[in-house]
Every structure is written in structure tokens, then in C-alpha cells.
Design a protein around this nucleic acid. Sequence first.
DNA 1: TTGAAAGCGCTAACAT
DNA 2: ATGTTAGCGCTTTCAA
Lengths: 335, 335
Amino acid sequence: MSDTPTIHDIAKYAGVSLATVSRVLREPEKVAPVRRSKVREAIAHFNYVPNAMAQQLRQPRFRTILVIIPDISNLFFAEALKNIENVAHQLGCRILIGETQRKQERLDHYVELLTSRVADGLILFGSLLPGVLRDSVEAGLPLPFPLVLAEGSVHAANCPRVKIDNVQSGEMAVRHLIASGRKRIAMISGPRPYTVSMERLEGYRRALDGAGLEQRGDWVVEGNFSMESGYEAMAQLLTCPERPDGIFCASDEMAIGAQAAIREKGLRMPDDIALIGFDDMRFAAYASPPLTTIRQPAAQMGEAAVRMMQAIFRGETIEQPTIILDHELVIRESA
Amino acid sequence: MSDTPTIHDIAKYAGVSLATVSRVLREPEKVAPVRRSKVREAIAHFNYVPNAMAQQLRQPRFRTILVIIPDISNLFFAEALKNIENVAHQLGCRILIGETQRKQERLDHYVELLTSRVADGLILFGSLLPGVLRDSVEAGLPLPFPLVLAEGSVHAANCPRVKIDNVQSGEMAVRHLIASGRKRIAMISGPRPYTVSMERLEGYRRALDGAGLEQRGDWVVEGNFSMESGYEAMAQLLTCPERPDGIFCASDEMAIGAQAAIREKGLRMPDDIALIGFDDMRFAAYASPPLTTIRQPAAQMGEAAVRMMQAIFRGETIEQPTIILDHELVIRESA
DNA sequence: TTGAAAGCGCTAACAT
DNA sequence: ATGTTAGCGCTTTCAA
């Protein structure tokens, strides 16, 4: 924790000018070998590393991407994040992570990192929109900083985004339930204000309409994507006069909560109740019974988002401003 | 994405000097109301936000903490991280997160953020030690930057750290198994090189010794903390000529994998095999059967680490350089 | 090939 | 109460 050496120290020690030290650092071939090694020696001696702030100030390079997610302990985001880190690493840029806990205030706080130029671009997961962006995004106005929307929940005019087709995948899930002969199909949906929730619910409705199956108000109960809420929603569903024989959960977490409620009642899956989740997170295969689910490609989503951001940084025109990734039905044993 | 205004633009627009603008920003009461509002108007007009790099360069405040964890999709770390974010927020400092995936190379890459002063301090989870620190930490030499060790796995002389007592908690887990009458107790341990793994294993040994119970080489199998490895380790344990009737898993993830293997064999928990995990992560309560486990206070650990870092920043002398947090036995249904 | 000097955007003495 | 000025640590013309 001793005092940090600056370029001056190096210059003095090596008996050269600041400019020479700087050159050794970034275009060493332009410095005579003798001095070059003198400088290198000094650098080694002081254990010198240039101050990144100062470098950045003088010669701004795009480099830091802020990634905002609603909840860091949600495995879907964790998985996406992981790949974002990986790809960003390769591409030589830095990742900053912010967790909003779905609070507007925290989101806005993080977004200050962009306006104050600590970060150069934003990859935004979740359904909240930063206050500063509210007007511009909706109206399709130019944005104050590079932005990529991920998981596709915010309604934004022409902003680059990467998502899956939530209504189609919701429909696919419910169709699978229908194909196995279920007639009384319920849904544990995501929280109401979020578009992902609404889209998956829409998929559920379409599948039911398509098959001419009954739809009842008390067969749709709203959770908040957590296991706890899944458990409670399922408990409630189990009290319905017409007990459902198939359940579509808008997230695997909720499905795992629901499974616990079903097991507690001594009911069997899929015999008594078939259950399908959404995400295919790491735990799905180890659930009891192993969870049938719709796979959302978290890793790919992360990668695509970073690549889009890079393209924006480079000033390339984005040929495909919204990328829709493939979802996939993963059949295990719960349905 | 238009050109960013600087303090000059504001000054010119408001017809005042740079200094006045700067003052309005940080000590507004020292500026006459008329000009103050003129400046504020200009700020609003340009939508001006000071460049954080430049601020930081001029007036360095300790503010950014780098948190390095092995695996972001491991819920234990996710949980700790969450609280770190929260506390740091309150304390007005920024968090950068780095994931090493247990690779020395990635760790060292992240540590450059410290030497180049993008970050001001490091909270290090996991058992890897950055290359730059190897000598100094072991020898107890002064460190090149503020460091707090969390989860207590690295052997470091007198570096501030926060951990739990892994051997005692391992012992507690196994004692619980013994108390329920188990005689043939196996362990699915963490990976060998890590001290946390070794300490929990030591706890297992002590408990067995204390009770005079048999210890067999094939009753200890090594996993890597993942569900997959837990599943495989359990499958292996199930082939032992003397089948264990109690299992201590060094992580809940491995325990959940092990549960799947046990269920597949049609064995019942805890009747045929009692199982105890470690961590008490979010999924433990929803496992089948709900997992008995040792609770590791992830959130507290995060909070304590941040507070220690703050103390170092402030130059306070740390009265208690190593904080040992309490673990706790959480009895559910698997043992 | 090298060095002097002018900034990058901001803050804080020091004057006034 | 306000403005002038000298940096923070670095990069990059521009001369030499």
C-alpha cells in the first residue's frame, strides 16, 4: 500500500522524458533499444502500472459495459452473466454488474455510471426502464448512451435487443401438456407488470384457445418468479374446486416451489398433475421428478448482447436490431 | 449519444467561471443564489453530468471495491454478493464483480484492475491467491492494495478476513448424523486443493474419531461442489460393499445431486440414508426431501467483508483482523 | 529518435 | 462571493 509510482518516477529513474516512457509502453519499436531497456528496468523496479483513470481521460477507449439484472441470485441471470463475462473478456472489455432488485431507484443509481462515463454502454435485463431513458426509448429518439436490451421485456422502439419469443414458447409449453392428454390446465404466471409475464400468459391462452380447452379465472395465479411464490400459488391451485391436472409455470424456480407443494399433498407427477417449467436452469434436471421445461438460451443471450454492444461501439450499423433466439422443449419426467 | 458537455460548456452558458460551476456541484451554499440557479439552469439545459474519471483523477476518493468469486452461478456466492452490493450501496461505494471460474489466469487479469487503480480494494472469495500477492501474503508483508479475504480459504498471515469455522461446522454436521444413530457415515467432500474442503473433511474425521466410528477410505469421495459431481459421487458410494447409512456433503449443491442418485435407486431419506448438506442455499428447503444442512451466513459474510474494507479505506486499525461468523444446524427432513 | 508542452475534465488553493 | 491558476497522470502533437 506504499505510494504509487507515476510516470514521472519512471522517467526520472530512467533518465528520460515522460514521453519516452509513454512510448515504451505503447509503441516500443519507436524507442532506441538502450533507453527502452532502461525504461523497462525502471518500470520493473518500481513495479509501475499506469493509472487507468488518467489513460482513459486522455485517450478514451470504449471499454466498460454495465450489465444490469434484476436479481443476481436468479440462476437464469447468473448463467447469462457468466457468458457475458467470458465473451467480454475475450473481446477485451470490462464488465460491471448491477443488481436492481427490481427497484427503479437502484436502476437509476446504476445508470449514473453511464452518464458519468464510468461505463460506456449498458446491457439491460429485466422489465424496468431507467428514468433518463423513458422518453427517448419509447419515442425511438437517439439515446444518450449505447444500449442493448436483453431478455426483451422493455417496450422500446428501435433499440437493439436480444430475446426469445415468449408467447410462442409459452404456447409450446402448454401444447406439450395438452398433447399428453391434460384437460384442466392452469398457469402460475410471472408478475403482472412485466411483459415477459404477459407474453407467456398470452402463449398459454393461445394454446388453450387452439385446443378449445376450458379457461377459468382461478386457474391462473400470479407468482413473482421465486420458489416461495411458486409454492404458494400451487397451494392455492390445489384448493380449486376443479383441480387442474396440468400446470405451466413461468419459471423453473416457481415450478420447483410448486413441486414441493404437490409432493406435500401426496400427489404424483406427472400422473396426478403434470408440470412444466420455464428456463431450464441448472437445478431443473435434479428436481423431483426431473423437470420438463422450456429451455431459454441464457448463455447465448449473453453472448449476443455483448456482440451487439461491440458492434455499436465500433459504430457499425446493426443489420439485425432485434435478435430472436430459439427456445426449446426439454422433456424430462414432470410432464 | 451526442457530444458530452463539459464543465466549460456550463460555465460559458451560465456566464460564470469553471470554479463556480464546480462549487455549485459540491458546495452550493457558497455560491450566491442568483448564479447558483443560473448554473443549475445551464446544467439542466445541457443535461450535464460531471465526468467521473476526471473527478476521480483530481480528487481520489476510495470508492470502488472489486469482489472476486469463483463462480457466479453458485448460489452461495450469489447470496453473499447480493448483500455486498446492498451494503456497499449504503456506504456509497461501488462494486465491481469478477468471476474466476477457478482459473488463476482470470484471477490475475482481474487483479490488474487494482494495480491500475480502477478499483481501490479487493474482497477475495475462494481459494486462489493472485500471483502478485503470493509472496507478500504468505510472508505477512505489506500488501500492494487493500485486501479482505472472505470465506477464509486462502492461507494468509495477518490479512483481514471473514470466515466460518469449517472444521467445527463439519464436525457438527457429522455429529448430527451420529446422534440419529447412523454408524456407517460417508462424506462427499470438496475438491482436494481447497482449504475449505480440507477443513470440512477434518471435521468429519474428528466427529467419527470422537464417536469411535469406523472410517473407510471408500467412504470419502471427492466432488467439486457441483450437483453433477454430487450425483456421481453418490452413485459411487452406493456401490460400496458396506453401504453408508449417513452422508455428509460439503455443499448443498452436491447434496441435491446426491439426493437425485438416491431417489433413482428407490432408497428413502432419511430412513435408508440420512443426508446432510452445507450452505443452506435457497433451494435446500425445496429439495426432496427438504435438506438438513449447515447454514453458512452468506449475507453476513458479505456485509462484514465490506465493512472491513471500509475500515481499511478509512485507515482505521482493524481491531479484529479475522472475524469468525457463526454457523448453524438447520434440521429439515433429509437427516 | 527524443523532449517540451499542451491538453483530457475536473478540483482546490490562492487571490481578489 | 468569485475568478485565476496550478495541477491529478497520462498521451500526443510539434519541434528539435
